[in-house]
Design a protein around this nucleic acid. Structure first.
Lengths: 188, 188
DNA sequence: AGTTTCGTGTGACCTATATCACACTACTGA
DNA sequence: TCAGTAGTGTGATATAGGTCACACGAAACT
């Protein structure tokens, strides 16, 4: 069976087995258990993470201890505090596991080395980032243009599996509504 | 004096004069007057735009004719309907001029050609996209975590010049509040 | 096995912000 | 030069969604 990362990269650019071997050698596999942190607020962020299996969330917690979820990441998703990672400053986000999770870690040095060595990989990351940008623009529009119920229904349609794996409280804090409001919305 | 695009690229990667000549040859300069559209909803989006001078806005208008501004772009900013541009589908956004504006147009074909030919440029666009992604994440957090007044004050702090060049009504629809609410906020 | 803690629903009440309506000034274009 | 429109302020009112409080079953530690 194809390695999930190879499969993932080849959705954007074909690579040979040797190239993939070389790429993979820049990643470190790691396992985390539910409730463990991949990134913790206030700490350095040496790695970006490609999720091989499991489920994590990336979130910001404000002074009143209110948590806002920026992203869920499951199989085949990347997740990190990119602000901290790319600028090599301490994290303002937390990334933690909602399930036991296996990831491939990519340090910034290895990422830049890979990108410098292999033009294809720089291309891959550029495309990924472009798509990510577009997705975030759409989320901003949705926050500005749609009410809580519409956002809930959109998410349900786009990622139905999430609702099987994630408590509603967290869905609420991803959508930017209180859990009480979400509960009332989904009742109807 | 340095060409604004060369200056812009060299903030990320140094390039020789010959390289810049080659890069620039892939762009087409164009001038637009106030109220003209760079991108119009429903049309194809052949070009991405680098703003040399002037000021534009990128916005989405919903069925009730309510406009949400995704982005302002002035000197040294890039602007487009990237969803439409990268996926070669029709625009859902409008990009139009708030002032007379000069841009450099980059077609998708030329962009991909440049990226394939010149590794440095692919690197440049990857970095730009990374930073753009981070900025949008921060905007999402701000929409979820801050009230209208806080968002107003953040924007005022980050881009004071915008308030000299743009009517408050548009600032409001960038911030995701009604113009009336913004008026009451800025009164205090 | 028993006791916390987590996830969820639901009522009562509160508040930030939207909406509607009107007024006034300053451009803008025939 | 005059009409129309863009930009803005402000009062009155409406409402989506937040907050607080309580309840209850299910999961998870010890």
């Amino acid at each position: 069976m194809l390695h999930p990362l190879k499969h993932h990269i080849e959705r954007i650019t074909p690579i040979s087995d040797q190239e993939f071997e070389y790429i993979l050698s820049h990643f470190t596999p790691k396992k985390f258990r539910k409730h463990q942190f991949l990134v913790q607020e206030g700490n350095a962020v040496p790695n970006d993470f490609f999720v091989v299996s499991g489920l994590v969330k990336a979130s910001f917690t404000n002074d009143e201890q209110k948590e806002h979820i920026l992203q869920f990441a499951m199989e085949d998703w990347w997740v990190c505090d990119y602000q901290a990672y790319f600028n090599q400053v301490n994290a303002t986000l937390n990334v933690d596991c909602l399930e036991d999770t296996e990831v491939l870690c990519l340090s910034l040095v290895n990422r830049e080395k890979l990108c410098a060595d292999l033009h294809k990989i720089e291309h891959f990351f550029r495309r990924k980032s472009n798509f990510g940008y577009i997705a975030l623009q759409q989320r901003i529009l949705s926050l500005m243009n749609n009410d809580a119920k519409e956002r809930y229904q959109q998410l349900l349609k786009q990622h139905p599996s999430l609702f099987q794996r994630v408590p509603k409280t967290l869905i609420a804090s991803y959508l930017g509504v209180s859990r009480e409001t979400l509960s009332r919305l989904s009742a109807q």
